[in-house]
Design a protein around this nucleic acid. Structure first.
Lengths: 246, 246
DNA sequence: AGCTCATGTGAACGACCTTTACATGAGCCG
DNA sequence: CGGCTCATGTAAAGGTCGTTCACATGAGCT
């Protein structure tokens, strides 16, 4: 019954020592379980073994805790996108696709963060630190787009990198939101979200003039058939980025 | 203080007469104001001038009301997409772009519905009627994609229509969620969400092999420079769907 | 006229968010 | 070492919500 609380208290004394962190962790777990909407401040406090009022010493209110989690999420998001981009190695297009996959992987593997970041209703511009973190994450995509834009084959016009970045972001976010999340809006699909996004991005890049050859979405990823950073090939390849023509 | 309630009662008698509808309307207004998360069952009841327990005669719980609104939203969504598609008139590509714009317009003009449909955490598969409505809406996009896929120029492989539909949906949803909503995740953009999506779709279609000429996003929309349904032109046009090359 | 049942009321319960006054004890200063 | 201070925690209380229950009302049928 209540010996639990006593014991907890006995274990750690009157002061918790690391409550802020414990609350963040507890909240993260709760959000992963029940979504940002179902997460409750009181529950996080309970889970940390403190009274319901204690969290207010560390967060102005429930929203600030949520906002903190979102910020942390954007930081990890940036780290993962950054690692995936790997400064464009081994070649820009390969790295670019890896970023898209990293986006989906993050949405899938860190549902709590993703939820807090994009689906919790936290206004990004409420917290300057949050906004900054969000911007840093986007800047990875932006930088990648910049490099990609510089590679447009001669003869084709160069698209604005910012626009490309926004396009890629919207595709990734659209696929992740609609098809790649755990509980909510899952639909039956003829292909995996990863394949769906990969095909989408490849078709898009082809529309920009990049000579993209078909890639059956899972083959050996390494050997770039073109000398890296030197676009070759004719305009329109016979195959497409999707499985089989016809 | 409380004469208000008395007067309400005097006006309409003990029975409301149309409470279900009144609740739906009230909830819609509240969601538009404060989002699906901030909307409260009690508030809706107050707004309709009834006690807090009355709504339970019409909805099992708060979630069912939300789900009903989402369903209604999908119905209106379908109607608008359907009208925009207009069975592919005057030509398939024009109609297709109109569907994309209708998607954004709906997200912008009916934030309450959009919120309930996509951001409220209502599981689509909870309510069969909701799921059916959602599917009907998607089928508009699917049908349009089907027609478009049938138009792929000779020599280019034909993409699966379902995949195209999912791609278009994810682009539209991504742009709408990230950039085209009222309060939440608004970012500064170099172009309007409409232009962003239009360019995205055009580039994508070009990637599929459609001969898309540049369209400065706002010119006279009517005259199709190609005989309708007879793709012409060379492979790669000199301009792009974005503003200016270079 | 009388019955019935859908529809609405008020009271009550438990959970949550948040504030306030008070308690505790860790760290510092003499 | 003794005492002070202030960050950190607690209990209690007020307000709102969601939800249920027993009871009230009256619209519509017989």
């Amino acid at each position: 019954m209540s010996w639990r609380k006593e014991q907890r208290r006995a274990e750690r004394g009157y002061h918790h020592g690391n409550l802020k962190e414990a609350l963040l962790q507890a909240a993260l777990g709760l959000i992963a379980e029940k979504g940002a909407a179902g997460f409750t401040f009181a529950d996080a406090a309970r889970m940390a073994g403190v009274s319901a009022a204690a969290p207010y010493r560390h967060f102005r209110d429930r929203d600030e805790l949520l906002s903190s989690i979102a910020q942390r999420g954007f930081e990890q998001f940036e780290a993962r996108l950054s690692a995936a981009w790997d400064d464009g190695r081994p070649d820009t297009v390969t790295a670019f696709e890896r970023v898209g996959k990293a986006y989906l992987a993050f949405a899938r593997e860190e549902p709590a963060f993703y939820n807090a970041m994009f689906e919790s209703g936290v206004p990004v511009d409420a917290n300057p630190a949050l906004q900054a973190a969000s911007e840093r994450a986007f800047n990875i995509i932006r930088a990648a787009a910049e490099r990609l834009a510089a590679l447009t084959p001669p003869g084709t016009p160069r698209p604005p990198a910012m626009m490309m970045a926004l396009h890629i972001w919207s595709m990734s976010h659209g696929v992740a939101s609609l098809f790649s999340r755990g509980d909510a809006a899952r639909r039956k699909l003829p292909m995996s979200p990863d394949e769906l996004l990969e095909a989408e991005v490849l078709i898009y890049l082809r529309g920009l003039g990049f000579p993209i050859d078909r890639r059956p979405a899972g083959k050996s990823a390494e050997p770039p058939p073109v000398p890296p950073e030197a676009p070759s090939g004719s305009g329109v390849p016979p195959g497409g980025p999707w499985g089989k023509p016809k």
